[in-house]
Amino acid sequence: MASRIASRRRQPSIPGAPLPHPNIHIESAGAITTVTIDRPRRKNACTPAMWAGLRHGFRDIAESSARAVVLAGAGGDFCAGADVGPADDEEASADQPPRHRIDHMRDIADTVMAIHDCPRPVIAKVDGVAVGAGFGMALAADMVWCSERARFSLIFARRGLSLDFGTSWLLPKRIGLHEAKRLAFTGDIIGASRAAELGIVNEVVAAEDLDAAVDEMAATLAAGPPIALANSKRFLNNASNISLFQALEAEALGQGVNFATHDTKEAMRAFVEKRDPAFEGW
């Protein structure tokens, strides 16, 4: 099933969805949707309009038939965060409308939520730099695969800024409060092996193997039961904010939903028949 999903014809975008931004590319191959930030000359640093493009893109994906999402950067880097430098061309100038900074930050917050709360499993594929908001974007995904040459930094302090893109909430949950403070206060750049030691990434692979490794995991996720996986994602995302009793109640309600689906019935039949289930998403 996974191989069939991965090998289906590549489509240019989600059918019926408008192009979110010229530098945000969305492609669908079967049940797997890939979102690529494509501004390599600025290491994929995002303008306000690009954040909006990501936000709208993920909202479209949430309502699509996609069953797994890969979030990546073009040109050998993941994302250098927000483009806070001078607008040195017409494209960048047009992407920075005159609005109060706090309005931009609230728009970015909506982008964080669109990625984090996407009901599909999201894999961040990190090559090169993931710094500032780019680091936060990787953390907003469900899992992170990176190359051996990946570099991560909460660079905010070096720019005279405090944390944003949800990093103050996301990172301590991933690596603990003390290590998160160390990265936040110093702005240190860490490599892939240190990121793995801290638990920031799931797996580190050679740069030439990164695409294949992520494709394999995405195909595995896309072959799974979408409704059950969406439930589990929500349970895990909410786990630190609710009591054990509330978690147990949510799990009970979730299983009530699952047992009413075709996919759970198919899984039970497949178990008895000693074969792999073929999940259809309903």
Rank of each mutant, 00 (worst) to 15 (best):
N231V: 08
R101I: 08
V272N: 07
R158F: 05
S168E: 13
T34Q: 05
R182I: 05
L71I: 13
D188F: 04
M268C: 13
A49I: 03
I37G: 00
D211V: 07
C146V: 01
H56G: 13
H116N: 09
A247T: 15
G191S: 02
K181W: 11
K265V: 13
G224M: 08
K125Y: 01
T33V: 14
R194N: 11
N231G: 12
P22R: 10
C79P: 06
E148M: 06
G132E: 03
E148F: 01
A133K: 11
G199A: 06
L236W: 12
S13H: 11
R67A: 10
G75E: 08
A239T: 14
A184R: 02
R99D: 12
I24S: 03
G81L: 01
L161K: 04
R269W: 07
R194S: 10
T33W: 00
G85D: 10
D188V: 04
D215S: 13
F165V: 06
E179C: 01
R9F: 03
L71S: 03
P22K: 07
I190E: 01
R59N: 15
T36K: 10
E148W: 00
R149S: 15
L139H: 01
M50V: 08
T111Q: 06
F245R: 13
E90Y: 05
K173Q: 15
E197C: 11
T36V: 05
A6Q: 09
F259P: 06
W169P: 00
A62S: 14
A2Q: 08
H262W: 07
K274F: 03
L170Y: 04
M268Y: 10
V204E: 01
W51M: 12
P86Q: 10
I26D: 05
V204F: 05
A267D: 08
N258I: 15
A184C: 00
R55D: 12
D88C: 08
I32A: 01
S65D: 15
A219D: 03
I189Y: 07
G176D: 10
G81Q: 04
A213V: 07
D110I: 11
A109P: 05
A141R: 02
I32W: 01
R275M: 04
G75H: 06
A114S: 14
L161R: 06
